[in-house]
Write a protein that binds this DNA or RNA. Sequence first.
DNA 1: CGTACGTTTGATCTTTCTCAATAATGGTGG
DNA 2: CCACCATTATTGAGAAAGATCAAACGTACG
Lengths: 244, 244
Amino acid sequence: MQIFLQELEALAPLSVDDRLAILQLPMRLRRLDAGAYIVREGDVPKHCVILIDGFAIRQKLTGQGARQILALCIPGDAIDFQNMFLDISDHAVQMLTRSIVAEVPREAFQEIVMTRPAIGAAVIHSTLIESSILREWVVNVGRRNARARIAHILCEFAVRLEARGLASGEGFELPMTQEQLADATSLTPIHVNRVLKTLQAEGLISRQRRRIEFDDWRALQEVADFNRRYLHVTSEDEVVAAAL
Amino acid sequence: MQIFLQELEALAPLSVDDRLAILQLPMRLRRLDAGAYIVREGDVPKHCVILIDGFAIRQKLTGQGARQILALCIPGDAIDFQNMFLDISDHAVQMLTRSIVAEVPREAFQEIVMTRPAIGAAVIHSTLIESSILREWVVNVGRRNARARIAHILCEFAVRLEARGLASGEGFELPMTQEQLADATSLTPIHVNRVLKTLQAEGLISRQRRRIEFDDWRALQEVADFNRRYLHVTSEDEVVAAAL
DNA sequence: CGTACGTTTGATCTTTCTCAATAATGGTGG
DNA sequence: CCACCATTATTGAGAAAGATCAAACGTACG
C-alpha cells in the first residue's frame, strides 16, 4: 500500500489524517497468478483494486474476438477507479505476471474520496493522467508505423517504471510476450517480432530473453516520436530541482 | 448552461444549492468560428470551457504532422476537466463548427468541485465515461477494419446525439469533412470516401450533403460491431422505465 | 464569376497480414 | 536430472487492405 500512497502524494499534498485514512482502509491482500482476471467486461465490481506488485493490462475484445490492449498497469496503479462510479465494467483487467493486489470495498473507497477533498483531488488527478496516457495510445495505434509504435511503447514503459523507481535508465524487464505486445500496438505478433529484430539490428536496443536494454536511448525516442510530456511525470531532475 | 446542468444531473443527483452554485459560476460566453482552437497542446489553460452549442474535436499531432482525432465534443460536454488539475494541456481542442462556449475560471470550477461532493462526484463520473469512450476509440482504430470503423463512429455519434435530444433515430447532420472523419478513424480521406460509398451502396446509410440517414440501423450496428454499453448512457427506454 | 475547399475516381505501390512451418525456451512429472 | 510438452519466438512466401499519387468534378461563398 506504501507504493500507492506515494503515488497519490505525488499528485496532491495529503495531510497526516488523509494518509492514515488510506492506510486504515479495510482491505484484503490477494496473490494472483499470471492470466488471472481482476475484472471482466460486463462485471459489476464490488472492489476497488490496487496493484501492489506485478503487472496487469486493460483490454477489450471485438465482436470478432480480436483483442486490443488499452493500458499497462504497474505497481502502485489503482486498477479500478472506474468502478467507483460506473456500475458496470466496460473492459477487462488481466494479470500479466504473478502479482499481489489490495482489494478495497467499493463503498469504503467512495466514502474516503467524497469526504476528503485532498484524496478526491489526487484521485481525479490520477484518472486524468490515465486519460492522457490513453490519448497518446490512440495516437500510437492510429497514426504511427509499426517501428514507431513498438519503440514508443518501450519508451513509455521505461519512463513510467523509472518514475516509480522500478527500473534504471539502462533497460527493463518487459513483462509481456510478443503476442501481447502485438495486441497493445495493434499489430500481428509476426510483425512485432520482425520490428524488434530490426530495432536490435539498428543498434537501438538489445534483448536477452524479455529484458530490453536501451543501446541508444536518444535515437530510440526519436524513432518512437516519444515525448514524455503526456505522462505528466515529474522527472527525476524536476523532483531534485523542487527539493532545493 | 442549462444543457450542461442537465448532463451533470444525469450523472449524480444535485441539490437545489448545487444547481444554483453551478448557475452562478462566474462565466463568459463566447462565440467561436469553425477551426478556432480552445486549447492547444502545451497550453497552460486558465479556464474550464463548456460547449453550449456546436461541435468540437480533441486532437493530437505526431512529430511527422499526422493528426489523430481523439474524441468528438457535443453540446453539453465539458471540454476541459483535464485542465482543472493538469497544468499543461496534452492535446488540442478545435471547433468543428461555429459554436458557443462558456468559459469558467479554472479556480472557480476547482473550488466548486472540491467543496460540493455531489458536483465532484458528477465530474468524476463524467470523466470516467469520457475515458470509457476513449477506450472504445482505441479498439475501433486498432482492431477494426475500415468499414467497421466508419460504421462505428457513425453509430457512436448518433447515439450520443440522441441521448442529449440533439437528433432523432433516423439520422443526423455529421459536422465533419471526410478528411476529419479520416483523422478520427486513422484512415486516409480517399479510403473514407470509398467506404462511405459502399455503405451507401449496401443500403445501410444514405447521404445528402453531410447528412447521414440510417436506412438499416440494425445492420449498421452489426457491421460496426457496435454495442452502446461503453457509452454508459441511460437509453430512452431506461429513462422511461425509471420514471415509472 | 472565379477561387478555395471538399468530394469523387483511377492506377499503382507498400506496409502489414495471413498462412505455414521450424526452432527455442521453460515448466512439469517421472 | 532428463524427457516431454506447451508456449513463445523466428523465418519464409504470398496476399490484401489501405496508402499514395494524380487529377477531375462539385459546390459554396466572397
